[in-house]
Design a binder for these strands. Structure first.
Length: 427
RNA sequence: GCGGAGAUCGCAAAGUUUGGUAUUGCGCCGGCCUUGAAAGCCGGUGUCGCUUGACACGGGAGUUCGAAUCUCUCUCUCCGCGCCA
């Protein structure tokens, strides 16, 4: 959510950003109009309240002087003022609520370096890492590999949970655990604190960190308690400091989280989504930074460096993509994706997303720190380190051998008891 | 799940019995003093509107001219009991 000050004193910035995104200005105008109406209503209500307060003081004074008659006179005068106040109060609250419902839907101000484009076709390449693996045989898709090696059970998972769930088995499951451990250690070594979050959140906290439409398409709600399963540990870790004034000496707060992630994936279809690429539940290691506004763009680059160093260590071939205006979404001001080469699919596909959300989440969550000029909203950043299911897909496809086995990335071998290749599961 | 105690400005506390419009200490910021610093003294230090103001004592509702204070309700924390990986 954008700060109201920007609507009152920096409206040109918002309009320019909408132009860049190709959006109509309707919502901006609505927010400004509702803000003016709210201020009028607020003023009226405050006048009425002031009247009431003065009367109350008069009564207090009169009673102290044992002047019951004077007290009764004033009480009779202000008898009905309460009803008037609550009516004005209701009106003001309603206007404020309307204003902020619309304000919540206005996207963040983009960084100037964000390329302009209508959709993902407008994304630009930032850098290319590693080399495309060459095969002297026809490379298999990860779906073929998990089936021939019996590493994943989709049908039995569908039987007990539903489609897009999976059992991981044998060496592939073991490598999943090794990946978690490797990624967490890797990010800890960059000065991040390891944090394991709750995997459910209440509605209020969740509205602070995500696009409202996600409640319909992404999040699982819980019965009977009004909670939501987290779609990523970004959400609890960012909302962790909700409603707090953070000690400046604590900033920047750097966290690496690991959690199961739950996504409904409503509307997602397609052959390329078969297998474990797009699923309802997966594990993700996530980097989070909460910092002062002046530092956030440097931190954004640092997060990306952590990612590229980590994926370089895994020895995989991928490109870094600069996300364009049309592909950006509401919350981020700038976003890099890592896209891994999948020889089976003959395409680069998303494995990491690295965002600077500036003060957009912090405004909604009311997360601030002290400065000489008063309390100021912090900036929040998040980046995948590794989403294990997708990392497994990339490793399987890029490291596959002619016989269908898969070479374990060197950095993971010590975490797999010295095992250098994934062997088929017996059943 | 049961019983008890609690939630007051960044932190710590008073005020709640008896309703009259939020106080103190620490921390932080600024000023005075000083060669500089500390100490000391003075002022400031939640939110919104900004011109005098309004709001804020965990959230919401109620009683009242007026609620931190009384009533109801929800949430969370602590202690004890029960259950449990």
């Amino acid at each position: 959510m954008l700060n109201m000050d920007l609507f009152r004193n920096g409206i040109d910035k918002i309009r320019a950003d909408h132009d860049k995104r190709g959006l109509e200005h309707t919502r901006i105008d609505q927010v400004i109009r509702l803000d003016d109406e709210w201020k009028d209503a607020l003023k009226q209500m405050e006048d009425a309240r002031r009247e009431r307060n003065q009367a109350a003081r008069g009564i207090s004074e009169a009673k102290k002087n044992r002047d019951t008659a004077a007290a009764d006179t004033i009480m009779a005068e202000v008898k009905n003022i309460g009803a008037k106040i609550s009516q004005l109060d209701e009106q003001a609250n309603s206007l404020l609520e309307q204003r902020d419902i619309i304000r919540m839907r206005i996207p963040n101000i983009l960084h100037e370096a964000v390329p302009i484009g209508a959709d993902e076709g407008g994304n630009t390449q930032h850098s290319l890492h590693g080399e495309k693996p060459q095969f002297d045989f026809e490379p298999r898709t990860h779906n073929e590999l998990i089936e021939m090696n019996k590493w994943v059970e989709l049908e039995r998972a569908a039987k007990i949970a539903g489609s897009r769930f999976f059992f991981l088995k044998g060496d592939l499951a073991r490598m999943e655990l090794a990946l978690q451990s490797f990624a967490v250690d890797f990010i800890i070594n960059r000065g991040f604190t390891f944090v394991q979050p709750p995997v459910m959140m209440n509605r209020k906290a969740y509205e602070g960190v995500t696009d409202l439409s996600d409640f319909e398409t992404v999040m699982y709600g819980i019965t009977p308690d009004p909670l939501y399963m987290i779609a990523t540990s970004e959400h609890p870790l960012t909302a962790m400091f909700m409603d707090e004034i953070i000690e400046p000496s604590l900033l920047p707060i750097k966290m690496v989280g690991v959690s199961s992630c739950f996504r409904r994936e409503v509307g997602a279809h397609g052959l390329s989504d078969k297998g474990i690429w797009r699923v309802h539940q997966f594990t993700k290691i996530e980097q989070i930074i909460i910092c002062k506004p002046d530092d956030s763009w440097q931190h954004h680059e640092d997060l990306l460096d952590n990612c590229t160093d980590l994926w370089d260590a895994l020895g995989l071939h991928y490109e870094v993509v600069n996300i364009c205006t049309g592909d950006m979404g509401t919350v981020a001001a700038r976003k890099y994706d890592l896209e891994a080469w999948l020889p089976g699919a003959d395409a680069y596909k998303e494995i990491v997303s690295c965002s600077n959300c500036t003060d957009y989440q912090a405004n909604r969550l009311s997360m601030r720190f002290r400065t000489n000029e008063g309390n100021t909203a912090v900036h929040t950043l998040n980046s995948t380190a590794v989403a294990t299911s997708r990392a497994l897909v990339a490793i399987m496809e890029q490291n596959q051998l002619k016989d269908g086995r898969v070479a374990v990335p060197e950095c993971l071998v010590p975490l797999m008891g010295g095992k250098t290749h994934l062997e088929p599961c017996q059943w």
